[in-house]
Design a protein around this nucleic acid. Structure first.
Lengths: 148, 148
DNA sequence: CTTTGTGCAAACGATTTGCAGGATG
DNA sequence: CATCCTGCAAATCGTTTGCACAAAG
């Protein structure tokens, strides 16, 4: 799988954030950068340890936690019981397919939200995010069986 | 706490949805209707069993699950590890205070989202929901200490 | 009386934690 | 070489499940 993110840039990003560079961290972050879905810890684990084991699950958790604190990664909570991770930390929205349950990034400028500086009740607004629900392209062409 | 929801209307709602009317269900649903925060199962439990025990935790879970299937209640996932419940099933947005972590309902018409029938990629849109982040009124006046 | 709900305790599954040995800067 | 990370297993914690008894229609 060719990708635009070289290990070098990953190493640099980690170092830049003051994180120690370890093979596990590089592998996890790199994996997250390569994929556009929003994997769970188990999916990442499965990916990393296909051949020889690269990392334990506890380490993946701790790595993701470090990456999150460093602002390289964010958590996505759209489904009960599991936390998903996203290496796209730029502001964007999410589309959730009600059929196959996949989560797709929606570019920030694809939606236009009018938001006053404060809401009724006087709550000060600092940011926002839209979750859009519907049926994704693949499910539509697949005829809707819930598989994609 | 005076409230506009009489037990009668709760009973009626349950019956209307074809759910058997039990004291536990009435208590749980009623509790959810009375409060405007978005409680977790533990909070509901604590509320119900202040005096004499009304319901076991397993029953609260099963009740909430029935209420959700009946469309009387919805789940809210905005925080890791816990599911919150909302008796407001009409479309609305949510405000999340980054200081005290409270969740406040935002009326549907307080925000204006321009949404095409389909997104880039051809995904068909059926609904959407905005999560707004910021500092709530009480935290602002409290001077920001994280308490409210 | 038949069906469905409740309570309790055990089972689960995702995430965290403690600690000894190993790698990083 | 001091510090931080990794791996493993045990510990947590929210949620689910199995089953016997009780309540609802």
């Amino acid at each position: 799988m060719t990708n635009v993110y070289t290990s070098d840039s990953v190493v640099e990003a980690l170092r830049h954030k003051g994180l120690r560079v370890t093979p596990q961290r590089v592998a996890v972050y790199n994996n997250l950068l390569e994929r556009s879905d929003h994997p769970t810890v188990d999916q990442i684990m499965g990916d990393l340890n296909q051949g020889l084991p690269i990392s334990s699950k506890a380490t993946v958790y701790s790595t993701l936690s470090s990456l999150r604190e460093a602002g390289l990664v964010r958590e996505i909570l759209l489904e009960e019981g599991v936390t998903r991770y996203d290496s796209n930390v730029a502001p964007h929205h999410h589309f959730r397919c009600t059929s196959c349950k996949c989560i797709i990034d929606v570019p920030w400028n694809a939606l236009n939200v009018s938001l006053a500086a404060s809401l009724p009740g006087g709550h000060a607004v600092s940011s926002h995010e839209v979750t859009v629900y519907g049926v994704c392209q693949s499910c539509q062409s697949a005829g809707d069986s819930g598989k994609n």
